[in-house]
Nucleic acid binder design. Structure first.
Lengths: 106, 106
DNA sequence: AAGTTATGAGACCAATAGGTCACATGTCAA
DNA sequence: TTGACATGTGACCTATTGGTCTCATAACTT
């Protein structure tokens, strides 16, 4: 399977995106720790983490019998750069900054 | 279906990503024009464009019997901002700029 | 060494998605 | 107004995917 296909397929599932959210909030967690946050069996979570790892969205490091999971932002940035050039980026960020400002302070 | 789910599901298919690539290169094309670039029937392409439009990745404008398609970068930027904070963004862009420079000039 | 803890591999089933086709509507041009 | 052009709808089949379970390996603790 193509490299980018693995990334987009991995992002297509809400449980996997939630796992990325958890790792974005705090890195270096184990499977058991992440499992406790999902309404799913350990096997399901392990399967999702494997998909994320094979896509390069999550990188891991073993520490004894534990496996620590870290978020890798590179593939996300590459998605961005594929369809947003430097010129458009200025407009879009300005637009979204304005939107966020309006939503926070009505 | 949740808003972000529509976006990620839409991006999960390679044909739809190719359609976004085509629109990124040149906006405002019709279904018939896009169809000629894909090895697929018109119905397949129309279905994909509908998915992209419902996700907000493509916006359309009617002109007589034709329907013109445009790329909308906002959802893409929102994916970026979900998992890359301002601090990390500096590191990742620097890294990818370096990578691109090395690949272009060996 | 023995028990407990952390993770891994593969079979299996139900639900979903990609692609094609038959059929249909609306628009332009002569 | 008649024919060609551009797009839309819903049924249908097949392949893929999410989730659970059984079985199994490896590492820490006492």
């Amino acid at each position: 399977m193509a490299d980018d296909d693995l990334v987009f397929k991995a992002l297509a599932d809400p449980s996997r995106r939630f796992l990325l959210d958890l790792l974005f909030a705090r890195d270096g967690r184990t499977l058991t720790e992440l499992e406790s946050e999902l309404a799913m069996t350990r096997f399901g979570v392990a399967k999702h983490l494997k998909v994320l790892e094979e896509a390069g969205l999550v990188v891991t490091r073993r520490s004894g019998r534990e496996k620590l999971h870290f978020l890798n932002p590179v593939p996300i940035r590459q998605i961005h750069d594929r369809w947003i050039d430097k010129y458009t980026e200025r407009h879009v960020t300005a637009l979204l900054d304005l939107k966020n400002a309006l939503e926070e302070e009505p």
